[in-house]
Amino acid sequence: MDGFLDLIRDITIYFSIFYPLLYIKSFVSNNKAFKIFTIYLVVIAIIQFSLVLIVKMKLGSNIFLSHFYFTTQFVLLSLFYAELLKFKWIIIVMTLVLIGVAYQFIDDPSLFYRYNPSGFTVTQLLIVIYALLYFYKSLSKKNEFLIVNIGIFFYLLSSALIFASGNLIFDVSISESVSATLGDINIVLYLAFQFLIFVEWWKNYSIPKIKS
């Protein structure tokens, strides 16, 4: 079982490098939302890669990277949905939340070496709300990025809980197997999310658009 999950973990890491390449291929000929999403994939790939590097080279804790992961994810997906939904207030909400998170770190610098459950939950749930709004907007007409939207909605909704409970590993009374289980669930969900990103590219962007 562990071997299988390790395999999935490796697959997700390789895929997270592979997908941006697919999207970069179609970067120029597509719209702003597509470009923002491609940048998101690239940034996530870099963070993933650094995570693995830190673990493999035994450089110590990689938890501080989670803050980069959540902040960039929040910023880029906010911009992505601001573009798709054409709502200006998403940018304002994004700025306010960023100020809030910055205040958390100023207030308690040691947070940098722990998980930040409230920060994770707020940022992930905001993105989930945007995904829901996008579902609503797509009801009556054909819209792009619907499959990715489903992926974002599922992955962020379920993983919000996993990451929010991330600080459990610092609880000495809880063994490592618990956090490992949570990590495994996250990996499976993440693979499903990646699969949907691939389906989106394959269905809508694999064939170059004819310029009209």
Binding site: F135, F154, L157, S158, L161, S165, L168, I174, V178
Partner: peptide, 21 residues
């Protein structure tokens, strides 16, 4: 208990998500 609660919560979220989709 913690694992169970977290698992149940995740399953509930997934079911809810599937229902919405």
């Amino acid at each position: 208990q913690i694992v169970n609660i977290v698992l149940i919560a995740i399953s509930l979220l997934l079911v809810m998500g599937i229902a919405i989709v």
